[in-house]
Write a protein that binds this DNA or RNA. Structure first.
Lengths: 95, 95
DNA sequence: CATTCATTTAGATATTTGTCTAAATATCTG
DNA sequence: CAGATATTTAGACAAATATCTAAATGAATG
């Protein structure tokens, strides 16, 4: 799957957009995120994988915990993709 | 499904993003679009429906043809949704 | 080192999605 | 009106997705 499609698919799920929103205020551990979303940790882990595949989040192990944070450098790329798609007079880029 | 989720799902498919790109230059009939995408007209019609459900495109019958065009007023809403999701210091809107 | 806590992986299942073929609907033209 | 053209709808099917339970892995601590 193309990197761009991976990003779009990651964003298409409301839980994953919720995770992004939850991380906007700062990093959180998998457990902290799990407390905010009403599903099993296994299911959430699947969503984490989708976000990692899109490089929208980064992870870092801190002792017993795994800390998730937004990958801000990729957010700029995403913004560019969106601008390309929606710009009224954008150039007709290949995907 | 929430209007916002309808939009995200519509955008998650590469064919549908291709249709949006194809319409950026101006309106096209269903047949003209069909010539650009390698699938049956029936399949394309399904994609048109997804885009219409998200109000990303409008249709207008012109004689024997149906003309598709971008719904530019909704594009602004989409931009706002994206800005909300990605803004570094955005407010924590409910979805 | 054995136990506990945190997280992920494996495997199963129901639902959704994208595509197709075939048939239906709508409009134009002779 | 009858036939031709344009588009959509209906129904079927394979592949992808989101979720779950159960088991496995990794790290900290007594």
């Amino acid at each position: 799957m193309s990197p761009q499609q991976t990003i779009w698919k990651a964003l298409a799920d409301p839980t994953r957009r919720g995770i992004i929103r939850a991380l906007k205020g700062g990093s959180k551990t998998a457990g902290e995120l799990a407390d905010e979303f009403p599903m099993t940790r296994a299911s959430l882990s699947h969503h984490f994988n989708a976000l990692k595949a899109a490089e929208l989040v980064r992870t870092e192990r801190r002792g017993q915990h795994i800390v998730y944070s937004l990958n801000t450098s990729v957010l700029d790329d995403v913004a560019a993709i969106l601008m390309d798609l929606f710009a009224r007079n954008g150039k007709d880029d290949k995907e």
